[in-house]
């Protein structure tokens, strides 16, 4: 029973990271109808920025803020420099460009920072919390991770719903032509979406790096699972991203915990099974709109 609790909580803690990546993918998908394969690479790069800042200032929070700022800049610059010229071209072109961007960022990180594991600090203690004498398997930092992702999701949801910028973003995502006709500068809104996605990715990077260590490829498998989470939840749904991330995190944790050594080998197979089962019943993810396909 204690184990079950520990598996669940550690699953939630990793699931929150997948959720953050999934959320950033959803933001970009809603704005540009594009899968951003560079999302993990961007998160990796901004975490290196954070490490440099932490190293020079000695302040974790300065590094944290720098990473988020770098994420915003990187997202916006990527959209303006290489994505925008490719929009309106065959759809896969932009996808390949994001793959190119991923490879470029990983190469640059290798050139600038070398290929070694880097240690990234946690904001709070990594010592486990206890309920009475029972260790829960999560630390104060894990609680912070969950809180930070949830708070950001909430802020985004509120922003989308109640601010005029959010309304414009939703309008542009729903129907660009109509949005444009009603005077919304769709291009700006899209750039903003990328910037926010960059911020979310950066958040995921600084939150997960204490648990994975940082190296140029450190976000690769996190990205794959974040992408899976987004697909499970439905790429149009921010709520779906969070639910998908948690579902995946917890399920993989159980698989590794209960299936023994083959379970750890087969974590990706477990993820695949979950994905297939979900898509069998909901081809557009759990939280897809209740639209009926016209075939």
């Amino acid at each position: 029973m204690v184990e079950f609790l520990q598996f669940t909580l550690s699953g939630i803690s990793f699931g929150m990271i997948y959720a953050a990546i999934a959320l950033s993918l959803v933001l970009i998908w809603r704005g540009t109808r594009l899968l951003n394969f560079a999302q993990g690479g961007m998160a990796m790069f901004t975490t290196y920025v954070a490490i440099e800042v932490v190293h020079h200032t000695g302040s974790y929070w300065a590094g944290f803020a720098a990473a988020l700022a770098a994420g915003v800049v990187l997202g916006a610059v990527a959209e303006l420099a290489v994505i925008r010229p490719a929009l309106g071209k065959p759809e896969l072109n932009a996808v390949i460009i994001t793959i190119g961007l991923l490879v470029l960022l990983e190469g640059l990180a290798g050139i600038l920072y070398g290929g070694q594991f880097r240690s990234f600090p946690a904001a709070f203690s990594v010592i486990g919390l206890r309920a009475g004498s029972t260790p829960l398997g999560v630390s104060r930092f894990d609680v912070f991770v969950a809180g930070a992702v949830l708070a950001t999701t909430l802020l985004l949801a509120i922003g989308f719903r109640y601010t005029s910028v959010g309304l414009r973003m939703r309008a542009a995502a729903f129907n660009a032509t109509v949005a444009r006709l009603s005077g919304i500068r769709v291009a700006r809104v899209i750039t903003l979406g990328w910037a926010l996605a960059g911020l979310l990715g950066a958040l995921a990077g600084v939150l997960v790096s204490p648990s994975t260590f940082l190296y140029p490829n450190s976000m690769d498998s996190i990205f794959v699972l974040g992408f899976t989470a987004a697909v499970i939840g439905g790429l149009d749904s921010p709520v779906g991203a969070v639910v998908g991330g948690l579902l995946l995190g917890v399920a993989l944790s159980y698989a590794a915990g209960y299936l023994g050594s083959q379970g750890s080998d087969l974590t990706t197979v477990v993820a695949l099974v979950i994905l297939v089962v979900v898509l069998m019943f909901r081809p557009d993810g759990i939280f897809s709109g209740a639209r009926v396909r016209r075939v």
């Binding site: 598996f7 550690s10 699953g11 648990s211 498998s221 993989l252 590794a256 915990g257 990706t268």
Partner: peptide, 10 residues
């Protein structure tokens, strides 16, 4: 490729 080793350690 899977850095969540909490299940194993638990």
């Amino acid at each position: 490729t899977n850095t969540n080793v909490a299940p194993q350690v638990a």
